[in-house]
């Protein structure tokens, strides 16, 4: 197994956003997988994701689950070939350029944050 959730979390705590890249077909993902979903290969290498990207989709959550306080913006960010789901800062829209800006921890587990430039 290449990248684990623990590795991904520890890196995020240190300010690094990790993903995996398939050594066989080149597909990249913003989260760990044991096997490549594109080609079935197991040769998934840990890779540092770009720290700048474009908002692929977004929404502002007005009715949050327990342990979160709304409203806040969540979205998916396109980073070259990979996407990550992240907290968004700066009232962004689809297509906006955003940069990686650390992480939040509101529920005991951390999530990446992207901010409008």
């Amino acid at each position: 197994m290449s990248l684990t959730h623990d590795d991904w979390t520890a890196a995020l705590e240190d300010g690094d956003l990790l993903g995996v890249r398939c050594g066989d077909c080149g597909a990249t993902y913003g989260t760990p997988f044991a096997v490549c979903n594109d080609c079935g290969g197991r040769n998934l290498e840990t890779t540092e994701l770009p720290e700048e990207g474009e908002v692929y989709s977004e929404t502002t959550v007005q009715v949050p689950p327990t342990s979160f306080e709304g409203p806040y913006q969540v979205g998916t960010v396109q980073l070259d070939g990979a996407r990550v789901t992240a907290r968004l800062e700066g009232d962004v829209e689809i297509g906006d350029h955003v940069v990686f800006d650390g992480a939040i921890d509101e529920s005991g587990e951390i999530a990446p944050v992207f901010r409008v430039e």
Partner: peptide, 20 residues
């Protein structure tokens, strides 16, 4: 591990699909 910590809700999941 990769969605719940962002505070994403189910209306939020379908909002992301629908907005795109």
């Amino acid at each position: 591990h990769y969605e719940q910590p962002t505070g994403l809700t189910f209306p939020g999941v379908f909002a992301l699909l629908t907005k795109r």
